[in-house]
C-alpha cells in the first residue's frame, strides 16, 4: 500500500509540551489543514514530518511497514518537502533556483523542458531570468513550490503560505493546491487563518 501515517508523535521544548501521541495520516490527493495560535507548534510539527527536527518520539507507517522516526529520517527528508513560511531562495535567477532542484547530470534538453514546464505551471515563465531575491511574496512562494515539485516529493508541507500575499495571489495559490491534489500529491498546510483554505481542506487538525 501507498500509505504514509505518523504515529505517537510527541514533542516538548523545556517544560512546554507542544503535542503528545499524535497520529497523523498524509493521504494521497488530500490536503490536511493544520491550525493553531502563534507558537502552538505548527512549524515544529511540520519540520519533524519533513525530517528536519527531531521528535521526542514517533513512528512512521509506510508501504506496509512501521519504522521509527529515526530510522526513516533519510526517506522523510527525500519524500516530504517543507516550505518555510518565508521560502529561502538562492542567490541567482529564478531559472537558477529551479535548476538547483534538478538531479545533476540531467541532459540539457531534459533540464530545459522540466524547468519550462514547471515555470509555466507556476506562472513564472516571464520571470525566469529575474533575480530570485527580488521576487514579490506571492512569486517567491510560487517559485518555492515549483522548485520543490521538481524533486517529485510524496508530500508537500506549506507553512503559512499566504502570509505575504494579496488577494489575487492567494486565489492563485488555492488553484495550484487544487491542481496538486488532482495530481495525487499529499498536502499539508499550516495556517492561523483557516478560512482561506476551507475549500481545499480534506482533514483539519487543530493544535
Amino acid at each position: 500500500m501507498n500509505e504514509l501515517i505518523f504515529h505517537q508523535l510527541s514533542k516538548h521544548y523545556g517544560k512546554r509540551c507542544l503535542f503528545t501521541e499524535l497520529t497523523l495520516p498524509l493521504i494521497a490527493g488530500q490536503c490536511l489543514l493544520l491550525t493553531g495560535k502563534n507558537g502552538a507548534g505548527k512549524s515544529t510539527l511540520m519540520r519533524i514530518l519533513a525530517g528536519l527536527d527531531k521528535p521526542d518520539q514517533g513512528e512512521i507507517q509506510a508501504d506496509g511497514k512501521r519504522y521509527s522516526w529515526r530510522a526513516y529520517r533519510p526517506q522523510l527528508q527525500r519524500q516530504i518537502l517543507y516550505l518555510h513560511q518565508q521560502p529561502y531562495l538562492f542567490e541567482g535567477s529564478v531559472w537558477d533556483n529551479l535548476a538547483y532542484a534538478l538531479t545533476r547530470g540531467l541532459p540539457r534538453s531534459e533540464q530545459h523542458q522540466q524547468i519550462e514546464a514547471i515555470a509555466d505551471w507556476a506562472g513564472l515563465t516571464a520571470l525566469l531570468m529575474n533575480p530570485a531575491k527580488r521576487l514579490s511574496g506571492g512569486e517567491a512562494q510560487r517559485l518555492a513550490m515549483a522548485r520543490a515539485l521538481l524533486r517529485k516529493p510524496r508530500a508537500l508541507l506549506l507553512d503559512e503560505p499566504t502570509a505575504n500575499m494579496d488577494q489575487a495571489a492567494r486565489l492563485l495559490t488555492l488553484e495550484m493546491l487544487e491542481d496538486l491534489k488532482r495530481q495525487g500529491l499529499r498536502l499539508m498546510v499550516a495556517s492561523h487563518d483557516p478560512d482561506w483554505f476551507q475549500a481545499v481542506t480534506n482533514q483539519h487538525l487543530a493544535l
Partner: peptide
C-alpha cells in the same frame, strides 16, 4: 548565514558538500 539556506539545499537533494558550497556562496 540563514539556517533555511542549508535546509533548503538539503531538501532539494544537494549533497552535504554541495550544500556547504551553496551556503558559502550565500
Amino acid at each position: 548565514a540563514d539556517r533555511r539556506a542549508w535546509e533548503t539545499a538539503r531538501m532539494l537533494g544537494a549533497s552535504r558538500l554541495r550544500a556547504v558550497w551553496t551556503l558559502m556562496y550565500e
